[in-house]
Amino acid sequence: VHTTPGLPSGWEERKDAKGRTYYVNHNNRTTTWTRPIMQLAEDG
């Protein structure tokens, strides 16, 4: 699994054909234009 540093585990930053940045979530095979926020791990 490709992961971009600074993004949550399983996420990758890519660019489309027009050079726009988007983000790929390999965990559930989705994409988004919005940069994901790293969540702190919570117990329980």
Rank of each mutant, 00 (worst) to 15 (best):
R29W: 03
N27S: 10
V1W: 03
T3P: 03
N27G: 09
R20A: 15
G44P: 14
H2M: 13
N27E: 11
S9N: 15
P5Y: 13
T31P: 00
R20Y: 15
D16W: 00
R14Y: 05
G44Q: 14
W33T: 09
K18S: 09
T30L: 14
T4S: 03
L40S: 13
A41Q: 10
V24S: 02
G10C: 05
H26R: 09
W33I: 06
R35I: 03
W11L: 00
P36T: 00
P8F: 04
G6K: 14
D16P: 00
Q39W: 07
N25H: 02
T3K: 14
W33F: 08
N25P: 01
L40N: 15
M38V: 12
N25V: 00
T21A: 11
Q39H: 09
K18N: 12
T21Q: 06
T4E: 05
I37D: 13
H26V: 08
E13K: 06
Y23L: 02
E13G: 03
E12C: 06
T34C: 06
T31D: 04
R20Q: 15
H26M: 11
D43L: 07
L40D: 13
L7D: 13
T4M: 03
E12M: 07
E42S: 11
N25F: 00
P8A: 10
H26Q: 10
N25I: 01
E12Y: 03
H2A: 07
P8S: 08
E12D: 05
V1M: 07
A41E: 13
Y22M: 07
R35H: 11
G19W: 02
T32E: 03
T31Y: 04
I37H: 11
Y23S: 04
N28L: 15
T4D: 11
I37Q: 14
H2N: 15
W33N: 04
T4I: 06
N25E: 01
G6C: 13
R20I: 06
R20P: 00
L40M: 07
G6W: 05
H2K: 15
W11M: 04
L7V: 06
P36D: 00
I37C: 11
K18E: 09
N27C: 08
D43E: 15
P5K: 15
P36G: 02
W33P: 06
G10K: 02
D16L: 00
Y22D: 00
T32P: 00
N27P: 06
M38H: 08
R20L: 11
P8L: 07
G19S: 06
T3S: 08
G19A: 09
W33M: 07
G19E: 14
T3V: 06
H26S: 04
N28G: 06
N28Q: 08
E13T: 08
L7C: 03
E13P: 02
G44E: 13
R29G: 13
D16N: 05
Y23V: 02
A41M: 10
I37S: 13
D43V: 12
S9V: 15
Y23K: 03
N28T: 12
Q39C: 09
T30N: 05
G6I: 01
D43M: 04
P8H: 02
W11V: 06
S9E: 15
L40A: 15
R20F: 06
T3N: 12
M38A: 13
T30I: 05
Y23N: 06
L40Y: 09
N25W: 00
V1S: 02
L40P: 14
S9A: 12
T32Y: 00
K15G: 00
G6V: 10
T31A: 08
W33V: 04
W11S: 02
H26T: 08
K18L: 08
M38R: 12
E12W: 01
E12T: 07
P8G: 08
T34Q: 13
V24P: 00
G19H: 15
R20C: 08
H26L: 10
T32L: 01
P8Y: 01
Q39V: 09
N25R: 01
W11P: 00
G10D: 03
D43A: 14
G19V: 02
P36I: 01
T32I: 00
T32M: 03
E12L: 03
N25A: 01
T31E: 06
R35N: 00
N27L: 10
P8T: 08
T30A: 07
R20G: 09
Y22H: 00
G10L: 02
T32F: 00
W11R: 00
T31G: 01
Q39A: 10
M38N: 12
N25L: 00
N25Y: 01
V1I: 07
R35T: 01
T30P: 01
R20S: 11
E12V: 05
L7S: 05
Y23H: 06
E12F: 01
R35Y: 04
W33A: 04
D43Q: 06
L40F: 09
Y22W: 03
Y23E: 03
P36Y: 05
N28K: 07
P36H: 00
S9F: 09
L7T: 05
R35P: 10
M38K: 14
R35V: 03
I37E: 14
S9C: 11
S9K: 15
R29D: 11
N28V: 05
V1Q: 03
E42H: 13
E42F: 15
T30E: 10
M38T: 13
Q39G: 12
T34A: 11
L7A: 07
T30C: 14
P8C: 10
R35D: 03
W11E: 02
A41H: 10
I37G: 11
G44R: 14
G10Y: 02
W11A: 00
T34Y: 12
P5G: 14
N27K: 12
W11G: 01
M38Q: 14
D43C: 10
H26C: 07
G6S: 13
Y23A: 03
D16H: 00
T4L: 03
I37Y: 09
G10A: 03
G44D: 09
T31L: 05
A41D: 13
R20E: 15
T34H: 14
G44L: 09
D16T: 07
P5R: 14
E13V: 11
A41I: 06
T34W: 07
P5N: 12
R35A: 09
T31F: 04
E42V: 10
E13S: 08
T3Q: 03
T4K: 04
P36S: 02
A41C: 10
G19T: 08
P36L: 00
P5L: 14
N28C: 10
H26A: 07
W33D: 06
Y22E: 03
D43K: 12
P5Q: 15
P36A: 02
E13A: 08
D43G: 14
H2P: 05
A41L: 12
R14Q: 07
P36R: 00
P5H: 15
V24M: 07
M38L: 10
T3I: 15
T21W: 04
P5D: 14
W33Q: 06
I37V: 14
E12H: 07
T30S: 11
G44S: 15
R35F: 01
E12G: 02
T32R: 02
R29V: 04
P5F: 13
P36C: 00
T32D: 04
E42L: 07
W33H: 03
H26P: 09
R29H: 14
T3L: 04
N25Q: 01
V1E: 12
K18Q: 11
E42K: 07
R35K: 12
R20V: 13
R20K: 12
T34M: 12
T3H: 06
E42R: 11
P8D: 09
T31H: 02
S9P: 15
N27H: 04
G19P: 03
T3A: 05
V24L: 08
T34N: 12
P5V: 15
N28E: 05
M38P: 13
G6P: 12
P8R: 07
E12Q: 12
R29Q: 13
S9R: 15
Y23W: 10
L7Y: 09
H2T: 15
L40K: 14
N28S: 08
T34K: 13
E12P: 00
H26K: 09
G19R: 03
T3Y: 15
G10N: 09
V24G: 01
